[in-house]
């Protein structure tokens, strides 16, 4: 089942004279339960695409539908509610509120929903257990490690049982061990709970956890790779070779 679809997405920044076209008509579809990676050199429009798909930014042209909702027809308020109830977000710099404890941060998206405290508590327990942060509940973000912060951020993204989780460079600020732990967690959640995940990354290792990787170049879809039945190492090598063709962001090796 298609959960997210975009048709001819264009995004132009600036006024007429200084206009810069960042997305130049992108078509894409994401099936339910997919783990999609978006890669591309700096300035190719990865983050812009993610923001536009996630309704944080408005597309200049094009149609975006997420589980049957057309984002264009929705008002500011509806979009906010939609984001809160249907989408989850993980950011590179965690974006946790420093003044809230880990538990308070995670429960934040539920704060104005009708979900009962009991239900919220149950979800909280389950998610923190899956992510291995169940003993941090009463700590403040500055008391835990970067990897733990990012897992907190992931837990916050998942607590509302979203249809799609958007992750923008979630491993960007983590060391490789913490990054692998986080990605394994995401992969597991994706597999076991059928949560659809879209992840922007420039790290080929991170991308190799995905089931499909889209490559952007100059605001256009360049190519895409499916993992299929390949193991992670093979997939990683494929990604690397595509990246070297693409130029820019890859490691020159």
């Amino acid at each position: 089942m298609t959960i997210l679809s975009g048709r001819k997405i264009r995004k132009v920044y600036g006024k007429k004279s200084t206009a810069q076209e960042v997305l130049k008509g992108i078509d894409m579809e994401v099936q339910e339960g997919e783990f999609v990676g978006i890669m591309g050199p700096s300035g190719s429009g990865k983050t812009t695409l993610l923001n536009v798909l996630a309704s944080i930014d408005k597309a200049t042209e094009g149609v975006i539908e997420i589980s049957g909702h057309d984002l264009r027809t929705m008002k500011e308020r509806e979009l906010s509610n939609f984001r809160r109830e249907q989408l989850g977000f993980i950011f590179q710099d965690y974006n946790l509120l420093d003044t809230l404890t880990v538990k308070e941060n995670i429960l934040l998206p539920l704060s104005i929903s009708n979900i009962s405290k009991k239900e919220a508590e149950a979800r909280f327990k389950e998610i923190t257990k899956t992510l291995g942060i169940d003993d941090l509940a009463n700590k403040y973000p500055n008391e835990v490690s970067g990897g733990q912060k990012q897992r907190t951020s992931a837990a916050r993204a998942l607590i509302s049982n979203p249809s799609v989780v958007f992750a923008d460079e979630p491993t960007g600020a983590l060391d490789s061990k913490a990054a692998t732990a986080l990605l394994s967690n995401l992969e597991k959640i994706n597999r076991d709970k059928k949560v659809t995940i879209m992840m922007v990354t420039h790290d080929a290792v991170a991308a190799s956890f995905c089931s499909r990787v889209l490559f952007l170049k100059d605001g256009q879809l360049y190519t895409e790779l499916y993992k299929g039945e390949k193991d992670r190492l093979r997939f990683y090598q494929e990604i690397m070779s595509t990246q070297s063709v693409l130029g820019g962001d890859g490691y020159d090796a």
């Binding site: 308020r77 906010s80 509610n81 809160r84 974006n95 509120l97």
Partner: peptide, 12 residues
């Protein structure tokens, strides 16, 4: 910024 990205409106 975080709160609005997560999906809280200005009024909230």
């Amino acid at each position: 910024t975080v709160l609005r990205k997560i999906g809280f409106t200005t009024n909230e």
